[in-house]
Design a protein around this nucleic acid. Structure first.
Lengths: 205, 205
DNA sequence: CAAAATATTGACACTATGTCAACTTTTCTG
DNA sequence: CAGAAAAGTTGACATAGTGTCAATATTTTG
């Protein structure tokens, strides 16, 4: 019903087009200027729409960015949701190293946009919340993986999987921000190796 | 020379007093309003000075906050600089657990101010830089401790002490921000135990 | 005490935000 | 298909905060 309306209704179509123009403009302006320096005026100018239009389609600058982050989030989730059912300690270690590497590589490939998002997290409550979503999804998944390993006699028991998962994710997240800032490009695999070594050495000793 | 002038010169004294009033006002306003919502107008109003005065004594809102952070930094440094020369693995583990606990406890005791600082880090380049200073000091110190343990046959070799130290500190830092946000109050010791267990289990297995 | 040095002040120019009444475009209806 | 209704667009405006600077006030000096 809504589908039909969306396709036929020329008004809605126009609206969608305007929205799209704004998003495209924002996608350019944000990385160029950074979150704080970017202004609605810059964005509407590039999108060739009126000032108020931006506020019709989005609640503000944060909202515009949040929508742009969806793409990045999708990529993140695909890593978080990788299957983890190792049969041996060696296989567990391999999977963990792979996941760690994938995570850090993503920091590199999505650098520009993550840089903007990192800046926004400090300022905008909604950006901060969006990032918290990504984080919790990762942590939940890691906690599951740890619990699985504990139940199958691969990992040391007696530690709360969620607390371990948090600490584990946090060290990754902070490395992510460093990579985004442009530090450590060359060492990426070395970092992954180190993080995985500490983690597995600790849990699987 | 400057000392003498400072004490005798009534103009300088007045200036110092004004500066002090501004800092006291900022110390109240920042935690009440948060970094973003706090304005220069609110601060000068409470300090009972003119608007421009704030800009005579400080370059802006960030600068005012940075100065307030010095106290907190001092406390942090005292933890970072604790001596670490364990003779056995058991002693190393004990020291590490102590340091971890002290670090997290500080997050609790300095909560309000750290909350403001956490917010400022995202917005203000100078706040971000100040925090980076604290962080690097910690990381350097931890890296030294790890190298010490490696050299004395207490810790596994073959891993870069600095990379390990970073991952280690990062998980602590992120837990710090969580504690500052008011999550995990009760679990504080449990968190310290978990972090220390992973770290020592990993390095000292 | 007058002049010099220093400190304080608020009005001003500037920049950005978010709102809303007027306007344009598209669809519906008799 | 005319004109009413609905949906979308627009920029002027009110508001709020920043940082600057010429004028003013206070203190020291000769």
């Amino acid at each position: 019903m809504e589908e039909t309306k969306s396709v036929t209704d020329g008004r809605h179509l126009r609206s969608l087009h305007t929205r799209h123009k704004l998003l495209e403009a924002a996608k350019e302006v944000f990385p160029e200027e950074g979150f704080h320096k970017a202004t609605i005026s810059q964005i509407i100018k590039r999108a060739k729409t009126g000032y108020g239009t931006a506020y019709v389609h989005f609640t503000g600058k944060d909202d515009l960015l949040i929508v742009l982050m969806e793409d990045v989030m999708t990529a993140f989730y695909s890593i978080a949701e990788l299957p983890f059912t190792p049969a041996s300690r060696a296989e567990a270690e391999e999977l963990i190293l792979y996941q760690t590497t994938a995570f850090l590589r993503m920091a590199e490939s999505e650098r520009k946009m993550l840089q903007v998002f990192g800046e926004a997290i400090g300022v905008s409550a909604s950006a901060s919340q969006k990032w918290a979503e990504i984080r919790e999804r990762f942590i939940n998944r890691i906690a599951q993986d740890i619990a699985y390993s504990q139940q199958n006699g691969l990992a040391r028991t007696g530690l709360d999987p969620e607390l371990v998962a948090r600490g584990w994710f946090y060290s990754h997240e902070m490395y992510l921000w460093e990579i985004v800032r442009g530090e450590h490009q060359a060492q990426l695999d070395e970092i992954a190796k180190t993080l995985a070594a500490i983690y597995t050495g600790g849990l699987y000793s």
